[in-house]
Design a protein around this nucleic acid. Sequence first.
DNA 1: TGAATCATGTTGCACTGGCAACATGTTCCT
DNA 2: AGGAACATGTTGCCAGTGCAACATGATTCA
Lengths: 218, 218
Amino acid sequence: MEYGSLALFYDITDQEVEAMIHCFCMRRCQFQTGQTICTYGENAGEVGVLTRGEAELVRLDYGGNRTILERLETGGVFGESLAFTPLLGDCVEVVSAGSSEVLFMEYSHIMKRCENACTHHSKLVQNMFRLVTEQTRQLSQRVEVLSRRSIRDKLMCWFQLRRLASGADSFTLPFTLSALADYISADRSAMMRELKRMKAEGLVEMDGRRVTLRTGEG
Amino acid sequence: MEYGSLALFYDITDQEVEAMIHCFCMRRCQFQTGQTICTYGENAGEVGVLTRGEAELVRLDYGGNRTILERLETGGVFGESLAFTPLLGDCVEVVSAGSSEVLFMEYSHIMKRCENACTHHSKLVQNMFRLVTEQTRQLSQRVEVLSRRSIRDKLMCWFQLRRLASGADSFTLPFTLSALADYISADRSAMMRELKRMKAEGLVEMDGRRVTLRTGEG
DNA sequence: TGAATCATGTTGCACTGGCAACATGTTCCT
DNA sequence: AGGAACATGTTGCCAGTGCAACATGATTCA
């Protein structure tokens, strides 16, 4: 097992990780498609790392609607203490997409300074920090987009963020148009309509999921 | 100076903080009302702590609109590496509200493990971690609210989060109704209209900024 | 290969909510 | 006390958007 490729264990040797697994009493578990990896509300003090496979952070609200809050790739971390507080009546859980493997650990164990002040321990904390910071960045970008009033403004805002990230006026959507509608929290058909208008006005060009912005730095 | 009361320095003695100030080459600065404490884009590697006073994280977009992204109290931390990436053409800055004092430090200094593996250093990292985690929670709540389609749903979602936080069906708005409209990213007058309807339907009661929810755990 | 499921694309209709333009109450500053 | 600046409250108008209900192409699975 190469742990080094996982962001959480960056700059920590596999031996050190093995030592921590033992020292922190981490649990390693396997999951299959559709299996619930964890349910928020239970084991709130636990943090998980996806060491293999993919998973989805989904919410089931009391009306039965299913929302994908986040898609987790290998290396992704999750845990109630890290982010989402479910609304009363809602249920948030991490579900395995395909076969996956997860390493569970106690949040308090990570944060508590251990007696022997091991180097890898503080590296772990720093890595965790980097991951949470990155998530914060993602979230504030989403807030940025969602706080626009119109579908057009939301799209333009998001496109500009993508352009900034890609460094070029052309970039490829990282997910489907339906998912984009979810992301900007708009009706899909209304979004399609607006996209069509924007294309007609020459604001953007689109070829499948390839987007080209035709605006100055607005 | 009692640093212990600041969340960033929790569980670190004032002597240790003083030592770190020296060791990390932190800069201490004073500001008056309206003075710019820092501008995102410059000194991206710096983190600041508000050791006295209050400040606002504001955005000026290219159209000249001014948005308050966050209000910082004493103990608040800010820094580009922690959150917001300004859109191209936008300008994000921290502005002092009243007289304030700020301690600046290098992000890399905090994260880099120092040679002498000092205890207070890793405590600092842990505290910083807690702060960022808390911010993540705030942001995901805001996303939660903003992703609702209608003003009514946004309000109800936010009210329910407040209820959850306060533990009672009654709670007081932490800011003005105008600011609430900004928070849910809706037109103020439209929000007032919707609030009136909700009151008429008996969903909520309002007396000034005192809100009472009249619903089961929806 | 056929069926099922999903993504994309389109349109009509109804209504929400953004905008502008007010009035009044409250707070704060000089 | 007078006035500026702000918070609250209200209304008419209508563009934009959500919703429902389709059609068609793409992908997946048995």
